[in-house]
């Protein structure tokens, strides 16, 4: 009789269970009504089954978002885990939609499900990609905008994983500042 190694039939469990959300901008509905949970997963294999099944971000219509959050955290500022949090924001030029967008988003997903930020991965709530005509955005959301150590570690690792050149500055902004901003830019808490 042949002995089959467990490697070949046991899925690889992730540290966390994750939920993928989709937002489609329909102006006749409320913001919350436009937000839909697609699916949850907690293994490497199920992550790929979902990722391979859905549209690439670059194929989505303008106004759409994907969000990947830890199970139990909703992809909105109001969630208890996000209220005092913020985000590392990557803003992309229009040219980058073709060159970088899908690659950056997949790398972001792999950072999350692979727990790339070591012990500081506990501070991660999720990530969001916004498809917008004026320029796409990708962000990693963390739970506490005052946790400088976690935020700077996450920012350094993330920037390196994306291959963003050292001379390019990325900013971390609190959701409270983003929600109450008056102009089009939010002040950075960290860079």
């Amino acid at each position: 009789q042949k002995v089959v190694s467990p490697e070949s039939y046991i899925k690889h469990p992730l540290q966390n269970k994750w939920a993928l959300w989709f937002f489609k901008n329909d102006k006749s509905k409320t913001w919350q009504a436009n937000l839909r949970l697609i699916s949850k997963f907690d293994t490497v294999e199920d992550f790929w089954a979902l990722y391979n099944h859905i549209q690439l971000s670059s194929n989505l219509m303008s106004g759409c978002d994907y969000s990947l959050f830890k199970d139990g955290i909703e992809p909105m500022w109001e969630d208890e885990q996000n209220r005092r949090g913020g985000r590392w924001l990557i803003t992309l030029s229009k040219q980058q939609r073709k060159a970088d967008l899908d690659r950056f988003w997949l790398e972001t997903l792999l950072c999350l499900v692979g727990e790339a930020f070591d012990d500081h991965s506990d501070d991660v709530c999720g990530a969001v990609i916004n498809i917008r005509a004026k320029g796409d955005k990708i962000a990693i959301w963390t739970t506490d905008y005052e946790n400088k150590e976690a935020i700077t570690h996450i920012g350094r690792v993330y920037k390196e994983r994306l291959g963003v050149p050292p001379k390019v500055i990325i900013g971390y902004q609190s959701h409270a500042d983003t929600a109450t901003k008056s102009g089009s830019t939010t002040k950075n808490k960290f860079v």
Partner: peptide
Amino acid sequence: GKRQYDRDFLLGFQFMPACV
């Protein structure tokens, strides 16, 4: 400890036949 997976390990599973 944490269940950490690096990018190459994760990418290695993208086109594996599905588990049943």
